[in-house]
Amino acid sequence: MSFEYTPPKYAQLIAELERRIDSGEYPPGSLLPSEHQLMAEFAMARPTVVKALGVLRDQGWIVTHQGKGRFVRGRPAIPTGQQVRAGRELLDRREVQASSRLLTAGEVEAPNRIAAYLGIKAKSSVVLRRTLVEHDNEPTEISSTWLPVEVAQGTALVESEELKQGVRRYVEAAAGTALDHIIEHITARNPTKEECTLLAVKSSAALLTVYAVACDATGKPWVVVESLLPGDRHELEDAYPIR
């Protein structure tokens, strides 16, 4: 059976802008086309263009000067740890900025894997926040945040309103400690019946699951952020120095 993969629109825009910067069409120091110009040229919605530009900024391709626009920096050096990695992006993502719909906010029984990641007893109660993320009106991700009840109680994390800050801010304030590092686990599986409906995929589809376990400096885990991604709509990439 033949298989064709079409990257999401924002990823296509990222690739084209990177190509133009690499080729010298957009030389270092030059002003990047505005959001409206890119929307018109590529026939894309503003959220798609903004997401692509945000990735390019975070990766070091461009820089934003308030009131002046976005300027080209050129091909970035190999990431040295300052690049926004997947787990950190999940922790810092604000629900009010994402094209998302809150599905769940409340206490549930922790699945075995989540209980193990949080270092709690199996079937303990945890707080779950689950959102469906969309781009260009297409479901692209189910994002779930799992927290110990004592961390989430009394905070916006248990409310059915979209979070105005990233999860990390709420967790650090409630725990009274800074999150120091993230341990990522990546697995693949088939979707459940509910996930088939939410993501508009078949039961035979391959889903990538990224678990980001955020810990303090002592190694104590405080929160798990899970990102469920249809394999035909996402590509995971990382780069790091070998010495």
Rank of each mutant, 00 (worst) to 15 (best):
L91F: 05
F42C: 03
Y117G: 00
P148A: 09
V84K: 13
G219F: 05
K123T: 09
E141H: 02
V72G: 02
E35N: 13
T187C: 02
R129P: 00
M39L: 06
M1F: 11
D232Q: 13
A175N: 01
E138V: 14
V224Y: 01
T177L: 09
I183R: 13
Q153D: 11
S124L: 07
E195D: 02
G81A: 07
A152G: 07
A45W: 03
E235A: 14
Y211D: 14
V50T: 13
S144E: 13
H181S: 15
T80I: 08
D136F: 04
T197D: 10
M39P: 01
A178P: 03
G67R: 07
V55L: 11
E141T: 10
A178W: 09
V224A: 05
V133C: 08
V49Y: 04
V223G: 01
V167S: 02
D58Y: 04
R88N: 08
I182W: 03
T218G: 03
G54V: 00
F3V: 14
E18Y: 00
E172S: 04
R113K: 15
E172A: 04
E195T: 00
Y117E: 12
I21W: 01
Y211T: 01
V167H: 04
G29C: 05
T187K: 09
V158Y: 06
S23I: 06
P27Y: 08
E150L: 10
A110D: 01
R168H: 08
K220A: 12
P139A: 08
P28K: 06
A43T: 13
G166Y: 06
P230Y: 02
E35W: 06
N137I: 05
R19K: 15
T48R: 09
R70L: 07
V171S: 01
A98F: 03
V224D: 04
K68T: 01
T140M: 15
T177I: 14
R20D: 12
I186E: 10
V127Q: 04
V210E: 06
E194S: 10
